[in-house]
């Protein structure tokens, strides 16, 4: 299957004062339900605990991001997602919970470099000084929805809908372009 599958903008990359790159195929599963009630199934299948509000938990190749009071997003290798979805479904049988693979509904970008905040500040109405590694913030980037996952001190992953991948890449590249450093964040 994987040789048929392509991400939204394979290989797209832009180097400015921060580097923007399309992250390739990323497995993603939406899990909706009472986050307390699904915790055991979630950790059994993914190895990750239920994240606190606007946090990310991680275990090996899997991570779980808090999306809303009754929703988390599971991140896993792309080709592992269908099987993981099935296992989650089985583990949650009988519970009021909904599991859906959404890997292909989204595009994922990495923004790397110490000045990632300065780039994203041009697009998102967010005080990035309040965000550190392990945080997720859902917001908008210019005119489209975006989820920003802070994965390290100098790296974030930005998730948007697949259909707007080119738009997102264009506005991220322009925001990170050399010469436009705003020197906003230390």
């Amino acid at each position: 299957m994987s040789d048929l599958a392509i991400s939204a903008l394979p290989g797209a990359e832009f180097e400015g004062f921060a580097t923007v790159a399309e992250a390739g195929l990323q497995g993603m599963i939406t899990l909706r339900g009472d986050l307390g009630a699904v915790a055991k199934a979630l950790s059994d299948v993914t190895g990750c605990n239920v994240p606190a509000t606007r946090k990310i938990t991680q275990s090996g190749a899997n991570a779980v991001a808090w999306m809303s009071p009754d929703e988390v997003l599971i991140l896993c290798p792309h080709d592992a997602a269908p099987a993981m979805e099935t296992r989650l479904r089985e583990a949650l049988a009988g519970a009021f919970a909904t599991v859906a693979t959404v890997s292909d509904a989204r595009a994922v970008f990495t923004v790397t470099g110490p000045a990632w905040r300065d780039a994203l500040a041009k697009l998102c109405p967010v005080d990035f000084s309040t965000l550190g590694a392990g945080d997720i913030r859902r917001t908008r980037a210019a005119q489209v929805a975006a989820a920003i996952l802070v994965t390290g001190p100098d790296e974030v992953r930005l998730i948007c809908f697949r259909s707007v991948a080119q738009y997102m890449f264009d506005i991220l590249s322009s925001a990170a372009s050399t010469g436009s450093e705003p020197a906003l964040y230390p």
């Binding site: 509000t53 606007r54 809303s68 009071p69 109405p125 967010v126 913030r137 859902r138 917001t139 908008r140």
Partner: peptide, 12 residues
């Protein structure tokens, strides 16, 4: 009140 974020009107 659902996610605790204080944000500007354009997010709402």
């Amino acid at each position: 009140p659902c996610c605790g974020v204080t944000a500007e009107e354009t997010e709402f």
